[in-house]
C-alpha cells in the first residue's frame, strides 16, 4: 500500500470509528484505530448486526438480501458506490445473467448508473434468456459460473465475438468455464461477494492470478482472504473476513 492510499484509509478508519450514525465498528474496534491492530471482522459480526448499526451514510440506495447457507443477511449499497464498482466493461448492449435475483438487479443497476441499458436474463428461463440475448445482439455479458453453463446454447450459433464476458463470484472452477474463451475478446474473472462488491480481477486462464482492484487491499490472515475497501460505503469493508480460502485463489499484490 502506498502512502497516499494509506493516508486515505487512515482517514476512512477515523471517520468510521467516530461515526455518529452507526457503531458496529466502534463496538468491535474499541479505541483502536491503527490499521495493523484493527481486528478482523467476520460476516456474522458485521452483517449479523442490525442494519441501522452499520449504516454509515444515508444515500439513495439498493438494499439486497443475500443468503449464506441457512442464514439471511441485508446489504445496503448506495447507487453512487454501485457505480464505482468494476463488475464488467462498458459496452452498448450488455446483458446481466446471474443465478441470484438481488445480484441481477444490482448488476443491472450498475449498468444504468454507467449509462448503459442492460438486458436482464430470467434466471429460471435460460431458453428465453438466450433468445432475447440474440434478439438484443448483446455485446457483453456479466454472469456467474452456474448461469454461464445455462447460457451456453447462446454461443452455439453466435455469429460474432462478444466484447467481454465478466464471470463474477467468490471462486471459480476453471475447468468448467474455460470453454467460453473463444467467444469473447476478453474473459475476466471478478472476485465478488454480495456484501463487498468486486475486489480482484484476473484473466481467464488455466492458473489465473488475481490483481486487487483499485482501492482494494487484500491480506491473507490464517488461511482466508481479508479485504479492506478504501471507499466510504454505506457499510464500509475494513479488515473483513471474506471466508474465501487463500488456497483457492492466487492473489498478486502490488
Amino acid at each position: 500500500m502506498n502512502d497516499t492510499l494509506h493516508e486515505s484509509l487512515r482517514v476512512l478508519i477515523n471517520e468510521v470509528g467516530s461515526n455518529q450514525l452507526a457503531d458496529i465498528y466502534h463496538t468491535v474496534w474499541g479505541e483502536r484505530r491503527a490499521l495493523d491492530v484493527l481486528p478482523v471482522i467476520s460476516r456474522d459480526e458485521l452483517f449479523g448486526s442490525p442494519l441501522a448499526s452499520r449504516r454509515y451514510k444515508s444515500a439513495s440506495s439498493l438494499v439486497k438480501i443475500f443468503h449464506v447457507g441457512e442464514k439471511t443477511f441485508l446489504s445496503e449499497w448506495a447507487y453512487e458506490d454501485v457505480a464505482r464498482e468494476q463488475f464488467g466493461t462498458e459496452t452498448k448492449r450488455p446483458m446481466v445473467y446471474l443465478s441470484d435475483n438481488a445480484e441481477s438487479i444490482e448488476k443491472s443497476m450498475w449498468c444504468y448508473e454507467r449509462g448503459m441499458v442492460p438486458l436482464i436474463g430470467e434466471v429460471h428461463n435460460p431458453a428465453a434468456a438466450v433468445a432475447m440475448a440474440k434478439k438484443y445482439q448483446i455485446d457483453s455479458l456479466i454472469t456467474d459460473e452456474l448461469s454461464l453453463e445455462r447460457f451456453r446454447p447462446f454461443f452455439g450459433d453466435c455469429p460474432y465475438t462478444l466484447t467481454s464476458i465478466s464471470i463474477i463470484g467468490p471462486q471459480f472452477t476453471i475447468a468448467r468455464i474455460q470453454w467460453v474463451l473463444p467467444y469473447a475478446k476478453e474473459v475476466r474473472l471478478v472476485l465478488t461477494l454480495p456484501e463487498t462488491g468486486a475486489f480482484a480481477r484476473a484473466k481467464l486462464e488455466v492458473n489465473p492470478v488475481f490483481s486487487p482492484l483499485p482501492r482494494c487491499d487484500i491480506e491473507t490472515v490464517g488461511e482466508t482472504l481479508v479485504l479492506t475497501k478504501q471507499d466510504s460505503l454505506v457499510t464500509p469493508i475494513i479488515r473483513y473476513d471474506t471466508a474465501i480460502s487463500s488456497k483457492s485463489v492466487r492473489i498478486q499484490n502490488a
Partner: peptide, 20 residues
C-alpha cells in the same frame, strides 16, 4: 434523495425474512 428500495424474490420467503 436518501431513499432505499428492496427487491424481493420468492426464495427470500423464509423464517428469517421477518427479521430482515
Amino acid at each position: 434523495a436518501e431513499s432505499r428500495s428492496l427487491v424481493l424474490d420468492g426464495a427470500d420467503l423464509n423464517s428469517e425474512l421477518k427479521v430482515v
